[in-house]
Nucleic acid binder design. Structure first.
Lengths: 329, 329
DNA sequence: CTGAAAGCGCTAACAA
DNA sequence: TTGTTAGCGCTTTCAG
């Protein structure tokens, strides 16, 4: 592979001039510019990012930390991040952490090592202490997941309000016995969604029944099945279920069907996230849509701003309740 | 951020010695080693990959090209690639191409620019001409998707045999009127799977009915619905459907249900890929499991070998028919 | 408008 | 065992 020296030699100019052409610097005469461009083409030259980045001490690479690419929730967000990054001449590195500290460390080191310019973290189980430490020296943004009181800027939705809207919808269509299938409340969003759930019940003077609240370790659909199984065994069954993720809700749907009951006639179901598959179930799933694409764009812009050295503020985006068959009696 | 010089200064040694410690070179006395290690800790030093890579002209980054991360099919493969890469001290860059030539170009340039050491392509719609061109100069491996007669090594399954097994299974449980929902036959795997389908029918002296063969532009579940809708309008309906992807098959399931028919009593369904969701449908989906994880490992090993300058051979892996509710009458 | 030269952080050949 | 030094490919002053 040709390097800048060979191009300079072939064009009969100095490397500085080639560099100027490469960076479309105005102070090059048309004649020399053409000479250089010809040489570049003839040698099939491509500038080495490594050299350029070392000199500029930047990599133009953004790290995106997700627990697992298997989770369809992240798809649209990543699209937003990617498009924003590319239009700002950045590329993104998708990093699957499996919420594994060792994996995380590899990626944290990449920014310490100047191999990446910043991080967008979407891992709810990220080691916050390390992340905060890193954030003191390097540009970091949290997307969707965040921790209260941290100093890292974030973009997310109002989880409490979203849950409140979901439960209120169920109440309005006549439900009084509404179960909540929540994830582990070590996650902030889980605590916030529970608050929204309780707020809606209180507002309509409905009792908060502890038996109706489930907690799951993970969001996979098997956990939805388990929780629903428990709920169906209750003397007094709920007539509606709000699950904090679509994958859980799909498990709920499956278990209800398996017991010969039907949705929404016997039990109405609301999910959260509006993943692609939420439209493929039978019945289709009522769910809370997060503005994923916009969230991705926002996170990327925040990070790029932060890399530029600007102060960035956290942002709350709006959600939307998407009413589909699973609550349309 | 401290650099190697500052460490050397603080430890009272030369940069070469620091480099030796960094690369665990044996020829350093325990005393100096300790001095250097102390200095590294005190300065909180992290070596710059940029400097190292420029010097070694390698980036230890592998590009993984996929059309879309939304496709669950790639999840396990990527896991395999990632684990293999990490244990060989490589990192992977997940690149979503959207089968868009412009996006592709960005990533092709990254390897030309020395920002990445090689490519694993899983994009069936990749620009093969460009990929072949690139392959002359840089290490490239195709995974799952490939083209006949190319010079790029690949790892994949025997698609013809897999389709043959799927259809034979349907025949053995008593079906004679078996439909095929195939993707566009511009893809090699689509042509191969059709051959397997026809081979099984021929072997059991069943006629090949053109009306039973559908082609879809894409693999999204909506296309499965459309195709099934067409099949259900036939005077003589098929009693079984083999769809070349699980997402298509899920669409098929949905459309059959929507018409008040049931699976597998009225129509049996077989998918392909064993994606996570194939176990979440009602009924669960019989499908062909590809050894995704192993495929990922194999592809990564092939690429790393190729980077080392070794010749690598293409590999065919075994598949497995997973029989579940959608064909268990 | 162009060239010479320093230097980004690191490794490795060579010398001591 | 350790130090000196050249150089990886590029950008950017500073002179001219």
């Amino acid at each position: 592979m040709a390097n800048i020296q060979q191009v300079a030699h072939k064009a009969g100019v100095s490397v500085a001039t080639v560099s100027r052409v490469l960076n479309s610097n105005a102070t090059v005469s048309p004649k020399t510019r053409i000479k250089v461009e010809t040489a570049i083409k003839e040698l099939n030259y491509e500038p080495s990012m490594l050299g350029r980045n070392l000199r500029n001490s930047e990599s133009r690479l953004l790290l995106v930390l997700i627990p697992s690419i298997a989770n369809p929730f992240y798809t649209e967000i990543i699209n937003g991040i990617e498009n924003t990054a590319i239009s700002n001449k950045y590329n993104i590195l998708l990093c699957e952490t499996d919420s594994n500290p060792q994996r995380e460390n590899i990626y944290f080191n990449m920014v310490k090592n100047k191999l990446a310019d910043g991080i967008i973290s979407m891992d709810p189980a990220v080691n916050m202490q390390k992340l905060n430490e890193l954030a003191e020296q390097y540009p970091i943004v949290q997307c969707s997941e965040y921790t209260e009181g941290g100093c890292i800027p974030y973009v997310t939705i109002n989880n409490e309000l979203a849950a409140y809207n979901a439960v209120k919808h169920l109440i309005k269509i006549g439900h009084q016995k509404i179960a909540l299938i929540n994830s582990d409340e070590k996650f902030l969003y889980a605590r916030q969604r529970r608050q929204g759930y309780e707020k809606a019940l209180k507002e309509f003077q409905l009792p908060i029944n502890k038996d109706f609240i489930c907690h799951t370790e993970q969001l996979e659909f098997e956990y939805g099945i388990q929780s629903m199984r428990r709920l169906l065994k209750l003397k007094e069954r709920p007539t509606a279920v709000f699950a904090v993720s679509d994958t859980l809700a799909i498990g709920v749907l499956k278990e209800i069907n398996a017991n010969g009951l039907s949705v929404p006639e016997d039990i109405a179901v609301v999910g959260f996230d509006k993943i692609t598959f939420s439209n493929m179930t039978n019945p289709t799933l009522t769910t809370i849509a997060q503005p994923m694409y916009k969230m991705g764009i926002t996170a990327a812009n925040m990070l790029i701003n932060s890399i530029k050295g600007n102060e960035v503020e956290s942002i709350l985006l709006d959600h939307e309740l998407v009413i589909r068959e699973s609550t349309m009696g």
